[in-house]
Simulated assay, not measured.
Amino acid sequence: MLLKKTLLIAALLSPSLFVSAHEYTAGGLHIEHPWSREMPPVAPTAAAYFVVHNKGAEADRLLSVSTPHAGKAEMHEHMHADGLMKMQQVQEVVVPAGGEVKFEPMGYHVMLFNLQQQAKDGEHFPLTLTFEKAGSVEVKVAVHTDAPASAAPKAEVHAH
């Protein structure tokens, strides 16, 4: 009996449990570690990030994002144009077959507007990703004071 309890405790404390708790699957898509940076309480916006891996044989498209945490959620991308860094909304993001798309600082990201309140470090909020083929999947976005070690770069500025 003691051995069973010890094994149960070891399984519950296993790092792999924490990793899998922050990974999601929709069809052939695997969504890895959705996160957002804690912002000052007066900040009007926030951003969410994650990685989508497509293990399928066909491309899929992320068509929309939504959350009850914000009045509006949009997919955006940073681009270099005429020597300047610009940010623009995108209507869809293609996830190639056998490939991945990173939503990260200075790349694709989800902008959250009209926030009821800024989330704090350690909190989570739901984000629904709707794909053309894989359908909708709700993920929990973890809020951190800094970017997780797996995310780079650490510097980020949003001037919306």
Rank of each mutant, 00 (worst) to 15 (best):
S150F: 14
H124L: 13
P153N: 01
Q91C: 00
L112C: 09
D121V: 15
H76Y: 14
D121F: 11
R61S: 11
P41K: 04
H80R: 10
K140P: 02
L62K: 05
L17N: 06
V157E: 15
V93F: 05
A57R: 11
K120F: 05
V65G: 06
K55R: 15
A11N: 04
A11V: 04
A73R: 08
P126D: 07
S64D: 04
H109C: 09
E38Y: 05
L63N: 02
G71F: 05
L63E: 09
A11H: 01
K154I: 00
F125Y: 15
E104K: 12
M39W: 10
V94T: 10
G27H: 03
E100Q: 14
K140S: 14
H80D: 00
L63D: 04
V143Y: 10
L62M: 01
L63T: 00
M106A: 11
L8T: 10
G98A: 03
A134K: 06
L8H: 09
K154F: 02
E156N: 10
D146C: 05
Y49Q: 11
V90N: 04
V143N: 09
I9F: 12
M111E: 13
A155D: 13
Q118I: 09
E74Q: 13
R61Q: 12
D82A: 13
A134P: 05
T130D: 04
P148Y: 07
H160T: 11
E132W: 01
G99D: 02
H33E: 11
V65P: 06
A147G: 05
P96W: 00
G71H: 07
A57C: 01
P68E: 11
M87Y: 08
L63S: 01
M39C: 07
A26I: 08
V19A: 11
L84G: 02
E138W: 02
K120N: 09
N54Y: 05
E23Q: 13
D146T: 15
Q118A: 10
A10M: 11
Q118N: 14
H76C: 12
G27I: 02
H158G: 07
W35E: 08
G135F: 04
K5M: 11
A81L: 10
K140C: 03
T67S: 15
A59T: 12
H109N: 03
G83P: 00
E23N: 07
A119Q: 10
I31W: 02
G107S: 14
A155T: 08
H33R: 14
T6A: 15
H160V: 13
T145C: 00
A152D: 07
M85L: 09
E38L: 01
M1Y: 09
F113M: 15
K102N: 14
P148R: 04
H22F: 12
M79C: 00
H158Q: 14
K140Y: 05
L112G: 08
P34K: 05
H22V: 10
Q89C: 06
V139K: 01
L112E: 01
S20Q: 12
I9A: 15
P15E: 01
R37G: 11
E23G: 00
S16Y: 13
T145E: 13
T6D: 14
G122T: 06
T6I: 15
E58M: 12
K55V: 00
S64K: 08
H144S: 11
